[in-house]
Design a binder for these strands. Structure first.
Length: 805
RNA sequence: GCCGGGGUGGCGGAACGGGUGAGACGCGCCUGCCUUAAAAGCAGGUGUCCCUCAGGGGACGUGUGGGUUCGACUCCCACCCCCGGCACCA
């Protein structure tokens, strides 16, 4: 028997697949988009130095599904590429010298080689990297379309600024007041920024979640993130400034309980207030870190001397400036109802402001000195003039209706989602194709002049202005509109823009006249199975959904959602921490593949546990997997030598094989239970090893090899050859024979009063009454029935007979 | 606080619309075979406790406490613990 040599076998088959273009797939000819397709995709990897085990999981899942679906006759698109712009390469260039491009391309070459070594079945002809001008040219083109529509705009806004990375961050990139990337505390700065108008799509992003097949947890995260709340917008008059100030509230029913009014320190009106105390307070609030502002126990604020008029009763409320009111949620101003809002109550306590209860629960005495913030069935309005006695929800509605009649209020919906700030003051990203002209203002670059190539610069270190500002020859251009002197935009795009459409480009990756051909994109999309981690649930996966909706509105493609089904893989952990380069706990596959072979590693990562839960990395388990692969190798080879050929006899081993076919097909095809499918094949191998020379052994061996192929494609291909067959990667997936799935005898359990007292071996189709008779005939059952009769008898055909006395 | 996920052997995990005896499969561990020895491999064992005429038999066991049911890891109620998301969001 030949020795099992993983490395040689794997190199051989990888070479063959490559020569045979085994996993390359063509787009359908125009008008001939027949045949079922499947688009399987894993989230675009960032090309850091090397792959690690955390990458093994999603890619191997994708690969198993790809190979399984291909053998089931589907036309499967499974591409791969690189999210190759971004800060890590730029920071490495600053740290170690060299150009971010060289660093990135070196990393890509390494990772691509690792990926090929693991044997993942990608169509490499469609590979893309987002830093290539062939790619970002079309991103710039799409930006121009967004800009034309007013969906990309520039505005001054307070932004999150990371002082270490010297760049603006998106809200999503700030966690607990710290930069998601480097952990530095984030500052607030007022800056001109580019934004995408994603808030226009807030409702659609929420509604269309109903149409996709994702885990509930991921949908819940997006719903949290979008944060829709229903309420009202109400205008308060401030006579001293001669303005009407809108506030958003979810509690219009408490309007009569408003006893003061608060503006956020950054509110535009605050600058108009002539008061040293106010100016001083605003200055101090501005330097507070986001974190300490949120963590502040004591409410702070300052009185302004202004008064806001409550539109419902004409009361004059004192106006405060306080930093517990956020500038970028709602309108940045609130009506304060201390009786029914804990925060307002805390502020009122600190400033000794009156508390007036206007909602009262039924049959309970409330402490009027405390806040009542709960909701109780049957609560009614009090102290609310003509609305007294109304149930609170109805009272709220009626109050808004009354205000609406006077033009002082309206029903309103507010979202937590903010517009997507996407400009970055860094070098290694996609240039934003606009120029600033002294005469014309912001002027988009002409389509024909794309791409705006990223120029080389001397120094990547940002020094208050973006690195691109150094490239003076590049910066200074003629205005595309008037020809006068103009300067290019020196900021670059957030890399989440790059990953918002890469899956579309794969469908037509070499197109040099458009981002993609609509027919190709419409054929392959939406993605049938998108695989990735939860950490992209709110950023990438919301942005990409937004992007697709816009492209749909622009008529560039024919669908509204990119990811029809999402499989969220767990994290690979060591101890309790997620394996990542940043955590410094990575174990690379290169090493393990070298030592144990790609097949054992692929099997191992999927056998460790359910792939949608976190998986603790252990080194011993991969040894167990090697043992299984060798055992399979030995058993199948033995069968190839000693088993008789010819049709299988339909004995127990055949039945077991058909059971395994059904189990594995269901586990991969429907349940995505990759670990139990492996267990089923192991069971079959165990049974086969007891009977290598039987009449059903050859069939069982073929089944083993065929079923394990999606997981361990190299050794499967080699063993397939030993069994005298060829080209397993394109062989039809086996189908279980329903007749052989039927067992010839089943064990039927007899219970007396819920306890198992006897077991019967009977044919599966034994009629109920016969079962009962057999059961009753048993001596053991008789002894438990104690001669008496059962009061009730329950029969589950093929399963059990239950007597209740 | 709101939302989502989860608690099963020494360990990772099975049991997928309530229907047998929970614990498949693997890791680890134990015993035996092979070997000068080791590794590898092979065969067997392995939830806990108790009884045993040695054939086996019994009780208890899926976070806790109740409930529904002939029957519950699975359904219902209450609670405890762990992980994650959102959060001065009006």
């Amino acid at each position: 028997m030949k020795r099992y040599e993983a490395n040689a076998i794997e190199a051989k088959w990888q070479r063959i697949w490559r020569e045979q273009h085994a996993f390359e797939v063509a787009n359908p000819a125009p008008g001939n988009a027949e045949g079922a397709k499947s688009y399987v995709l894993e989230q675009l990897p960032y090309p850091s130095g090397t792959l690690h085990m955390g990458h093994m999981l999603p890619y191997t899942i994708g690969d198993v599904v790809t190979r399984f679906r291909a053998r089931n006759g589907l036309h499967v698109l499974h591409p791969q590429g690189f999210d190759s712009f971004g800060l890590p390469a730029e920071n490495a260039a600053i740290r170690e010298g060299g150009h971010p491009r060289e660093i990135t391309e070196r990393n890509i070459a390494h990772i691509r080689a690792s990926m090929r070594r693991v044997g993942w079945a990608y169509d490499w002809t469609r590979e893309l990297s987002t830093h290539e001008p062939e790619y970002y040219r079309w991103q710039q083109w799409q930006f121009l379309k967004f800009h034309e529509r007013g969906l990309a705009y520039r505005k001054g806004a307070p932004v999150k600024w990371c002082p270490l990375d010297q760049t603006v961050l998106a809200n999503e990139q700030v966690h607990d007041g710290r930069c998601e990337r480097c952990g530095t505390e984030v500052e607030s700065r007022l800056m001109e920024q580019w934004f995408f108008r994603i808030t226009d799509y807030a409702q659609a992003l929420l509604d269309d979640l109903e149409t996709v097949d994702w885990p509930e947890s991921i949908k819940a995260r997006q719903r949290n993130w979008i944060g829709r709340s229903e309420g009202a917008e109400i205008l308060f008059r401030i006579d001293e400034l001669d303005v009407d100030v809108p506030v958003f509230t979810t509690r219009p029913d408490t309007l009569y309980g408003a006893t003061f009014f608060v503006l956020a320190p950054e509110h535009e009106l605050v600058a108009r207030i002539e008061s040293d105390e106010v100016r001083d307070y605003v200055r101090r609030a501005a330097v507070k870190k986001t974190e300490e502002r949120a963590a502040a126990v004591e409410k702070t604020g300052v009185i302004t001397g202004l008064h806001a008029v409550n539109p419902v009763n004409g009361e004059s409320l004192p106006v405060y400036v306080a930093d517990y009111v956020l500038t970028d949620y709602g309108t940045g101003a609130i009506m304060a109802v201390p009786a029914h809002d804990q925060r307002d109550f805390d502020f009122a306590s600190a400033f000794e402001l009156p508390v007036r209860h206007v909602v009262r629960p039924p049959d309970v005495d409330v402490d009027e000195r405390a806040a009542y913030v709960e909701h109780t069935e049957g609560e009614v309005l009090v102290n609310s003039a003509e609305f007294d006695g109304l149930p609170a929800p109805e009272g709220g509605r009626r109050i808004v209706e009354k205000l609406a009649a006077d033009g002082r209020g309206r029903f309103a919906i507010n979202y937590r989602l903010r517009d997507w700030g996407f400009s970055r003051q860094r070098y290694w990203g996609c240039p934003i194709p606009v120029v600033y002209c002294e005469g014309c203002g912001i002027v988009p670059v002409k389509e024909d002049d794309l791409p705006v190539l990223l120029p080389d610069v001397e120094d990547y270190k940002p020094k208050g202005r973006p690195p691109l500002a150094q490239a003076e020859d590049w910066v200074n251009v003629a205005c595309p509109r008037c020809g006068g002197p103009a300067k290019r935009e020196t900021e670059t795009m957030d890399t989440f823009v790059d990953s918002s459409w890469y899956f579309l480009r794969y469908c037509d990756a070499r197109n040099d006249t458009a981002p993609f051909d609509r027919a190709a994109v419409d054929y392959w999309n939406p993605i049938d199975l998108y695989i990735g981690g939860v950490d992209h649930a709110t950023m990438h996966m919301i942005y990409a959904r937004f992007w697709v909706k816009v492209l749909n509105d622009l008529g560039l493609l024919g669908f509204r959602e990119p990811f029809a089904r999402f499989y969220s893989n767990g994290w690979v952990t060591t101890g309790k921490t997620k394996m990542s380069k940043r955590a410094g706990n990575v174990v690379g596959p290169d090493d393990f593949v070298e030592r144990y072979g790609a097949d054992a590693c692929r099997l191992n990562i999927l056998f460790l546990g359910p792939a949608d839960q976190d998986i603790e990395w252990t080194e011993t388990s991969v040894e167990g997997m090697t043992r299984f692969v060798r055992r399979m190798w030995r058993v199948v080879n033995e069968v190839a030598e000693v088993a008789p050929t010819g049709a299988p006899a339909g004995g127990p081993l055949s039945r077991k094989a058909h059971w395994a076919i059904a189990k594995v097909s269901d586990d991969i095809g429907r349940r995505f239970a990759f670990n139990t499918a492996i267990a089923a094949v192991m069971e079959l191998v165990n049974e086969l090893s007891r009977e290598p020379a039987g009449p059903d052994s050859l069939f069982a061996a073929e089944t083993v090899v065929s079923l394990i192929q999606p997981y361990a494609p190299h050794v499967a291909e080699e063993l397939w050859e030993h069994l005298g067959r060829e080209r397993l990667w394109e062989a039809p997936w086996p189908v279980a024979d329903p007749e052989l799935l039927e067992v010839d005898t089943v064990e039927v359990v007899v219970q007396v009063n819920g306890r198992v007292r006897e077991r019967l071996r009977v044919p599966p189709d034994t009629p109920d009454d016969e079962l009962v008779e057999l059961a009753r005939a048993s001596e053991r059952v008789q002894s438990y029935l104690d001669g008496g009769e059962a009061a009730r008898t329950i029969v589950v055909p093929g399963k059990l007979v239950s007597f209740v006395t």
